[in-house]
Amino acid sequence: MPSVSMTVNGKAVSGNVEERTLLVQFLREHLRLTGTHVGCDTSQCGACVVHVDGKSVKSCTLLALALEGANVLTIEGLAEPNGPLHPMQEAFRQNHGLQCGYCTPGMIMSAIDIVRRKGHELDERTIREELDGNICRCTGYHNIVKSIAAGAKAMAQGGAPRQAAE
């Protein structure tokens, strides 16, 4: 089996994988980073969103082998171990932006990418439109929208996100 090496959450990792192995499988099954979830087969739900080289991607649509040398950030790498939560994580907790928690890692990773692209002052319409690639079945999005608006503001106030590209 071919091998692949990349940086995941700041650590160099490598593994031998079947050619058809998706990034999400590599993360979950090889690295045991199970915070990244699979919710559909068709790249619709966004539960698998991670950052690759600083941009959000659906990890179910990328082959692991295509990511040789890439810099990958998953939900597990957002906050330093035993350090404070990332402001977006904290915003989801403060605003009850999650219920069953299954879509949440993908939501948070997408939300941080929205802030990267759209800035820290996000109106409701922008958040709702930008969340098009993430499905939540529990919250009705009301509190996710609040969480992201609050998290975006908090990120401006010094709580800078840890970027995969750094």
Partner: peptide, 10 residues
């Protein structure tokens, strides 16, 4: 329960 879910530890 949120701490484990927002950190990917569910």
């Amino acid at each position: 329960e949120d701490l484990r879910f927002i950190t990917g530890k569910g």
